[in-house]
């Protein structure tokens, strides 16, 4: 199976509460909290699309969209 290719991180800023779970548990250190304490994809090129941030987000606020996703 080909490696999934990242299209974008969809982050719902109204739902994100800035708990930092996605930031601290990302295996590739892709995400950061910005000055409003919301998650942002600071280094999207490093993303391996494991989607652990999406699966672990307590606020359903982040989605990892890959090229394969319709």
């Amino acid at each position: 199976m080909a490696k999934p290719k990242l299209k974008e991180h969809l982050i719902n800023r109204d739902w994100c509460k800035g708990c930092g779970i996605c930031v601290e548990l990302c295996p590739k250190n892709v995400l950061e909290l910005d000055n409003e304490n919301k998650a942002v994809a600071a280094r999207p090129v490093d993303c391996i699309c494991c989607k652990m941030c999406e699966l672990r987000c307590p606020d359903l606020a982040i989605e990892v969209i890959t090229e394969d996703d319709k």
């Binding site: 739902w15 509460k17 708990c19 699966l55 987000c57 307590p58 606020d59 359903l60």
Partner: peptide, 20 residues
């Protein structure tokens, strides 16, 4: 949404897993 659980609350993660 956003739900009323505190920032970092595990209950949101249970909801996430249950929906999946």
């Amino acid at each position: 949404f956003p739900h009323l659980w505190c920032s970092g609350c595990g209950h949101g993660m249970v909801l996430n897993a249950l929906l999946r």
